[in-house]
Design a binder for these strands. Structure first.
Lengths: 342, 342
DNA sequence: TTGTAGGCGTTATCAA
DNA sequence: TTGATAACGCCTACAA
């Protein structure tokens, strides 16, 4: 009833060459074989269209040649872009990617993490949100290398690859301060998320560094989604102490903010200076071109994949947190403002 | 050197209960076991934390409990949203999703398709682009159920789930015609892609149905990406016979088109009527709210997953093409126009 | 209902 | 270098 599966096995190759199964196996795994036999084997493999049965191999080696990737949402292009890069590196090493998203749900996050463990993936890359040490236990116990991306979790000692959010945020806000802005709004993500906290920290650090006061009313917490960016930008504009500049801290909310700006006929940068987040392409297309914080998406994905491959190959080592620099790209969306105005 | 793997096996459960391996196995597969033994087994399983080794099971049953999903790009939210829904249904059936994107590259598409076959996935859902019958052969030969989504390929007889593009397109353009528009631009995808052709067909059909002439200059072919939508909308605006309405045929290009509109200070719908594609959320947020063709994303994903599960379970049947209706959501971005104007 | 035994395709050990 | 043989963990006749 199952698959038709006419796949050839090592046995067939053995028969076809007159050699033994173990010789073929040794050849397949890079062992030494007499030149004559080698040619023979290769011819047979080609002729029979033989492919190693990864399942059977996995049963012996307890390796599945698959890696689990777990992200909060498949509808967030920042995460899916990273996945794209991870997948690329991994596939070049003959690893497949088992992908799960947990729809921002902590219960699902844990459930799917365990699912990946049950699937006996050889390694896991994940964006952690609600997991704590107890949930990571099964992973560690199973000896599965784990790499966090985009965030770290306090108390969990684990390899991680993420942007230096605080620094990036600092540099972005600094650009606004330098240009004379004092009332600078920030549209953050959800309070409980790691990057929210870090990006806000950079914002505050910039103010402190320049000896300025932070106005709490200009700090808005959103949902990292389009509608949140839209709503919060309007809130800022409508507040009593409306800002002269706004910093939006992820891509989706940047999109929403731009829409709000257009809706209100706000002229950028004359009426409002704006710095967004991620997605180079969009920054270029918008007129006037948008200044943004650009995370090194490709680098994050590739680094995570490489570290994981290394751990899979060479076993565990002392966990390292890789902080990658994000660029602040200055474009036309920033204005200079005289002190009196502000 | 490999994983620490302290996983318990059926053997352990057998020892722990004093029963034989085959009895445990039978229990696991839903066979009949004496009530006493059943309780015993369940207790042991719980106590030992036993989980079936899917790899070993797979070696016998030649099932991997994984499904391959192959899409053109992980940076296209339409596809990733579908994947999200597929993954959801599949995981509820204990299937994992091995995800590949082929970066719009025909060579990669074939390569990754073969990769999935080599991985012995139990089924494949894919968005086909450049594959032809010869590439599908290995899949069919391996007895792997295959479901196309979003597109079909002429000459390949295969289950498929996709929106009724032509009809959706017809209805969208009809709304413009009804409102008096005659010079209606369309921003299509790449010429060689299936949906491009279908959506254009609907556009043309609408004109024919109302006895109107199609102006070839108002038909633009793009790349289904943000920059394409942006560039082509400007091209349309700048052409000699500038349209009074434009229909944009995917989400990313709609985004680009909106940006172009804002950049030029075009007032929607006074200066230009606009119908976009996909992504309800964005349509709501933009002011004035955007009219769009909304594909049944969730339904597409879930249907594809269900069909695949059915094929995996019940074996092949005569291929069916499931056409799902797309909605045309009318919002504020459409104006009525008097004949003389047009 | 339960247990014995053989095999799925591969790797790994150890003689030859 | 090569080959017989025993696993890996599970399923499945078949026999008890």
């Amino acid at each position: 009833m199952g698959g038709i599966d006419i796949s050839t096995t090592i046995k067939d190759v053995a028969r076809h060459t007159g050699l033994s199964i173990s010789t073929i196996s040794k050849y397949l795994n890079g062992g030494n074989v007499l030149p004559d036999n080698r040619r023979n084997i290769e011819a047979a493999i080609h002729e029979l269209g033989f492919k190693v049965n990864e399942i059977a191999r996995g049963l012996k080696t307890s390796r599945t040649m698959t890696v689990g990737v777990l992200i909060p949402s498949l509808e967030n292009i920042f995460f899916t872009s990273i996945v794209s890069n991870i997948e690329n590196v991994l596939l070049n090493n003959r690893y497949g990617v088992i992908l799960c998203d947990y729809r921002q749900d902590k219960r699902l996050e844990i459930e799917k993490l365990n699912f990946l463990v049950d699937k006996m993936v050889d390694g896991i890359v994940m964006v952690p949100q609600g997991v704590s040490n107890e949930h990571i236990m099964p992973v560690v116990k199973a000896g599965i290398p784990l790499v966090f991306i985009d965030r770290v979790i306090k108390g969990i000692d684990c390899d991680a690859v993420l942007a230096d959010n605080a620094e990036a945020s600092f540099k972005a806000v600094e650009q606004l301060i330098i240009r004379g802005h004092r009332r600078i709004g920030i549209i953050c993500g959800p309070r409980e998320i790691f990057t929210t906290e870090e990006r806000l920290r950079g914002y505050i650090a910039a103010f402190e560094h320049y000896g300025l006061m932070v106005d709490r009313d200009l700090i808005k917490f959103g949902n990292y989604q389009v509608d949140g960016g839209h709503r919060l930008l309007l809130e800022l504009l409508d507040s009593d102490s409306a800002p002269t500049a706004v910093f939006v801290t992820n891509y989706e909310m940047t999109l929403g903010a731009i829409m709000a700006v257009n809706e209100r006929n706000i002229r950028i940068p004359r009426d409002l200076s704006l710095i967004g987040f991620d997605n180079l392409e969009m920054a270029r297309i918008v007129k006037p071109s948008l200044s943004i914080v650009a995370q090194p998406i490709q680098q994050i994905g590739e680094t995570a994949a490489r570290i994981l491959l290394d751990r899979i190959k060479n076993g565990p080592g002392s966990p390292q947190v890789h902080r990658l620099k994000a660029d602040v790209l200055i474009n036309e969306s920033l204005s200079y403002i005289s002190r009196e105005e502000s």
